[in-house]
Amino acid sequence: MTDLWDGLREAVRLLAGGDGDVWAIILLSLRVSLTATLVSLCLGVPLGATLALARFRGRTALVGVVHAGMALPPVVAGLMVSLLLWRNGPLGDARLLYTPWAIVIAQAVIALPVVTGLTLASVQALDPRLRMQLLTLGASRVQLVWWLLREARLPLLAAVITGFGAVISEVGAAMMVGGNIRGETRVLTTATVLEVGRGHFEVAIALSMILLLVVYTVMLLLTLLQQRRPA
């Protein structure tokens, strides 16, 4: 209990005292995880909608891959991205390993199946007659997909929430591809692991609490967006 109180006091001190290192870590965490979530949305929503609406050979197998991807361990995603970005790897020339972009890529790989799978489920959960109704109202293919996604926006926001939740809280991939370099690729989760290793439990607890506070704030904003009701 004492440790927890010490941690809480330390968290308040770090935040209120304007500790430059801590604020840099918080901002980097947010920037990296929000970018990764955005990338996964840009790719995953169209992909999920296509899988929900189109019928083609191999579709079920592909949906299976997406669902398996939803259980992808972050460490495995980190390893795959490491191998790609390794100096001798296929994307080695881009020199992205141990930069925030490497973490963005790894986290986007983690969030992509989550967003795709949940988009697929939310579009499939719509009344199938809604698609026919939109077509008979004169919707083009693009208008059809846009309005179906609009109708599914509540579960789609759940996809955003789940995707962001998966990446802001993961540590394995960020550690592996980012390297936890102070001032460059250190994020809240990797910093927490480091402080635990050093035996600085009150700092680790403080960082964890800050992480929880950050997550709560972002999720509260998304929830407000989701629960907004038209008159």
């Binding site: 009344d127 007659r129 026919m132 008979t136 109202l137 004169g138 083009s140 609009r150 109708e151 038209p230």
Partner: peptide, 21 residues
């Protein structure tokens, strides 16, 4: 097909209204 479908309208058994005003 799209141009000709736009000369048609259909009303289903369920009202199937969109989640807007």
């Amino acid at each position: 097909a799209l141009a000709l479908r736009r000369q048609i309208a259909m009303v289903f058994q369920a009202p199937l209204l969109l989640d807007t005003s």
